[in-house]
Nucleic acid binder design. Sequence first.
DNA 1: TATTGTTATACTCTATAACTATA
DNA 2: TATAGTTATAGAGTATAACAATA
Lengths: 170, 170
Amino acid sequence: MNAPSRARPEAEPKAPPAGIEAKRDIGLLKTIIGFHLRRIQNHLAHNLAQQPEFDGQKSGQLSALGIIAANPGLSQVALAAECGFDKAITVVVIDALERNQWARRERDSDDRRRNLLFITEAGQAKLEEWIAVTLRNEQPIHDVLSGPEFAMLSELLDRIYQRCFNYAPD
Amino acid sequence: MNAPSRARPEAEPKAPPAGIEAKRDIGLLKTIIGFHLRRIQNHLAHNLAQQPEFDGQKSGQLSALGIIAANPGLSQVALAAECGFDKAITVVVIDALERNQWARRERDSDDRRRNLLFITEAGQAKLEEWIAVTLRNEQPIHDVLSGPEFAMLSELLDRIYQRCFNYAPD
DNA sequence: TATTGTTATACTCTATAACTATA
DNA sequence: TATAGTTATAGAGTATAACAATA
């Protein structure tokens, strides 16, 4: 296994043994953002999957539900663009959300090709639960960043996505 | 398709049509770092896979080669820890690198369980080629960030990984 | 007993293409 | 002719568990 298994029963589960400092270099990879993103993402996803509250949760569901909650009535392609995944994936994700009655599709009467997406009350509760679990999972990040640093990181990442990748179809 | 296909022949390939501004909100997801990381990572990986220079390249190979280059003689588990993936994946990745003679394994005479990893001359050249292609792929990010902002982003991401996830076994 | 590397297997995530229904 | 959504299929990425060799 690669990802750290928090063996410590109590106490903070993320502090490195202290004394064992970063001795390895990432060389040319320093400027490759994709490298940074993926290795962090790997650990976050791995740890999150082990949280009991996330049992059957396919990872896209949290993103989708969060975007639907913040933008009630958006279309599936708009959701896909905002979440960064394909429209085909969107179908599967929303199927799961609808099956659990956390979200629902509604035909757009103005353009009957479209489904408008809405979150349900149960979905809102589930979203908040998921957010809490995820924030707990990401707590180590908050521990090594100051408040302003975290705000800066969020802002930079959001700007990158909005300006580089999100063409925001209607 | 979801990822933007840079249709514009010349000019900056990332500026949104202008006038179409970010109108969508990410709500509670704002503070979820994993959300930011994955959607950016999705687009970067998708775009990179379309670069002809990256034809048969399984994405882990660039990371592995970069780490090996910066840390000649490290072990496979150390490489796995630094790249953020499992030791089982490491085997497959190094198999591919070795097959192309971009890297080689060498039994550690002090601890014969271990393989020490080294990059070859051809591997160094290939690494630099891949880095160039990847940097070009990530150019839109550089276009929307100032120099200091980019440096800050790299530093924050590296710190997060080193302090939260990399227990750096020997 | 624990660790390094290996193999085999399965599952998750994402991409692609073809299809429908609407526009 | 183009777009929204769907379906089916395939591929890439990763995780898991069992194993051999070595410590």
